[in-house]
Each structure stands twice: as structure tokens, then as C-alpha cells.
Amino acid sequence: MSVGTPPKVKTGQDLGIYSLRGLAIVLMVAGHVIGVTPDTGMNVAHGSGWRISYELLEDIRMPLFTVLSGFVYAMRPLTDSANYPGLMRGKARRLLIPVLTVGTLFYVMQMAIPGTNNSPEFTDIWHVYTLGYAHFWFALALFIIFAIVAIMDASGWIATKGLFTNEGVVG
């Protein structure tokens, strides 16, 4: 590849969207590293540059990531229910496996290492997989949303403009 030549991408992929997804991920991770309060994450005090950047971006991080996830799905929506298992395998690989592995490791490390922001009990480890634990609730929620939207898409329930607009309301 020569200088100035854009990288090759699969058909249907938008590098701008994928770049924004990368930025959204970096912003989310940075937010968790800095910490929601001065007592969490890096224990960054109020008034510091890191705390101010966290607070300025607070209303952008998760909505940006969520909107981009939906946009990427909309680029290749599920139109045939026969493709549902493949879509869910992909979503499980990207969302559930990290919850199972990293979520479990995160929980166990918080349980075992003194002085962490939280000291959970081993008997509550099932929260990681059912209710979501710490920031891992977001991955579980996205998985559930994708599962429901894909079923609705494949069934044709959201294929018509009128379903969720005034045109679909009998009045």
C-alpha cells in the first residue's frame, strides 16, 4: 500500500463510522479509568483536567456508542429469520464472551485485591451474568436489544414506516 492510498475494506463498511466507533470505545474506556467519582477509577480529584474532561464528555460517550451500534446494524439489517442464529453468534462473540471472561476476571480481582473500589462477595458472582456488574451491564443490555430488534426486523414488524409513526395510528 502506498502513501495516501486508503486501506481496503469490505463492501458496505464505512471507515468513518468505524473510526467513530473506535473513538467512542476509547472515550468509554477512558471514562471508566478516570472513574465516575473521585473515589473510583484513578481517584482523580474534582477540578483536575482529567475530571473536567470526564464530566464534559459524560453526556456523549454512551449515547455515541449506542447510536453508532444501531447505525452499523442498520447498514446490514436482518431481513431473513434464517440468518438470526448467525447474527446472534456474532453478537455473543462480541458482547457476551467479554462479559463472561473479562466480567468474571474483573469481579474476581475486585473480590481478591484489597483496596479496590468494590469488594463483592463470591456468592453474588451470578450478577455478572444476569443483572450485569459494574460497566458490564451495558454489553448485556446491547445484546438483549440486538436480539429483540433482529427478531422484529426478520419478522417484518419494523419494515413499514407507519408502525412507529402517526401514519400507523388509527385515529
Score class of each variant (00 low, 15 high):
residue 137 W to S: 11
residue 5 T to V: 15
residue 61 R to E: 02
residue 6 P to R: 15
residue 48 S to C: 08
residue 108 V to R: 07
residue 44 V to E: 10
residue 79 T to C: 08
residue 50 W to P: 05
residue 103 G to F: 09
residue 69 S to N: 01
residue 101 T to H: 05
residue 161 K to W: 10
residue 29 V to G: 01
residue 99 V to D: 00
residue 146 F to W: 07
residue 64 L to A: 07
residue 68 L to F: 06
residue 9 V to F: 13
residue 155 S to T: 07
residue 6 P to E: 04
residue 141 A to V: 11
residue 33 V to P: 00
residue 45 A to H: 09
residue 48 S to N: 04
residue 61 R to C: 00
residue 140 L to Q: 09
residue 69 S to C: 11
residue 136 F to K: 08
residue 141 A to P: 09
residue 78 L to M: 09
residue 101 T to C: 07
residue 73 Y to A: 01
residue 121 E to Y: 15
residue 157 W to K: 03
residue 153 D to N: 08
residue 161 K to R: 12
residue 110 Q to Y: 14
residue 46 H to P: 02
residue 144 I to E: 07
residue 55 E to T: 02
residue 85 P to Y: 04
residue 51 R to D: 02
residue 129 Y to H: 04
residue 106 F to M: 09
residue 105 L to R: 03
residue 73 Y to G: 00
residue 74 A to S: 03
residue 41 G to N: 11
residue 49 G to S: 05
residue 15 L to I: 11
residue 21 R to T: 01
residue 135 H to N: 06
residue 27 L to Y: 11
residue 100 L to F: 13
residue 44 V to H: 13
residue 142 L to F: 10
residue 49 G to E: 00
residue 14 D to K: 10
residue 8 K to Q: 14
residue 120 P to R: 12
residue 125 I to S: 04
residue 50 W to F: 12
residue 14 D to P: 00
residue 37 T to M: 12
residue 141 A to T: 11
residue 151 I to V: 07
residue 5 T to F: 15
residue 81 S to H: 05
residue 168 G to E: 02
residue 15 L to Y: 09
residue 63 P to Y: 07
residue 19 S to D: 04
residue 58 E to G: 07
residue 53 S to A: 12
residue 139 A to K: 08
residue 138 F to N: 10
residue 168 G to H: 12
residue 74 A to M: 08
residue 171 G to L: 15
residue 106 F to Q: 02
residue 90 G to L: 02
residue 166 N to T: 07
residue 51 R to V: 06
residue 29 V to A: 06
residue 115 G to P: 07
residue 102 V to E: 00
residue 94 R to C: 01
residue 148 I to A: 05
residue 4 G to D: 08
residue 9 V to M: 06
residue 147 A to R: 10
residue 48 S to E: 06
residue 72 V to F: 14
residue 40 T to S: 13
residue 131 L to P: 02
residue 63 P to R: 06
residue 166 N to E: 09
residue 130 T to E: 03
residue 78 L to H: 07
residue 56 L to G: 01
residue 14 D to A: 03
residue 47 G to T: 04
residue 56 L to M: 14
residue 153 D to P: 04
residue 23 L to R: 02
residue 71 F to R: 04
residue 146 F to N: 00
residue 5 T to I: 10
residue 159 A to R: 09
residue 56 L to H: 07
residue 153 D to E: 12
residue 43 N to Q: 12
residue 92 A to Y: 15
residue 18 Y to F: 14
residue 84 Y to P: 06
residue 170 V to M: 13
residue 53 S to D: 02
residue 60 I to C: 02
residue 106 F to I: 05
residue 47 G to E: 00
residue 154 A to H: 10
residue 107 Y to A: 00
residue 97 I to E: 01
residue 7 P to T: 09
residue 93 R to M: 09
residue 67 V to Q: 01
residue 102 V to Q: 10
residue 171 G to A: 13
residue 26 V to K: 03
residue 142 L to A: 05
residue 91 K to S: 05
residue 57 L to T: 12
residue 94 R to G: 04
residue 14 D to L: 09
residue 12 G to N: 01
residue 13 Q to Y: 13
residue 124 D to V: 05
